[in-house]
């Protein structure tokens, strides 16, 4: 085998539109409570009524 990088490895992965989002948990800061918390996707989806919007941005203290 050669050491050259396989161009396919450079192709990024990630969820595609139409796919089911797997469960995830993330630590949060909750501005309404002034406290830290946890967002759990599976508990959010338990009653199957809520839509979720995930909004990624590069860094705090910059524009969003």
């Amino acid at each position: 085998m050669h050491d050259e990088e396989d161009p396919m490895d450079l192709v990024c992965c990630g969820l595609k539109v139409g796919q089911k989002v797997p469960d995830f948990k993330i630590t949060t800061f909750e501005p309404t409570k002034g406290n830290f918390g946890e967002f759990s996707f599976s508990s959010e989806k338990k009653d199957k009524k809520k839509w979720t919007i995930l909004f990624f941005y590069p860094a705090d203290f910059t524009f969003v």
């Binding site: 992965c13 990630g14 969820l15 089911k20 989806k45 839509w51 919007i53 995930l54 990624f56």
Partner: peptide, 27 residues
């Protein structure tokens, strides 16, 4: 990374917005 917006070199997330349905599908 799960949503494909992680820039490993910079250690930052790109500006990605994702809408997920109540039954958990990325739309």
């Amino acid at each position: 990374s799960l949503f494909g917006v992680y820039d490993e070199e910079k250690g930052l997330a790109l500006r990605g917005t994702f809408i997920i349905s109540p039954d958990g599908v990325l739309l």
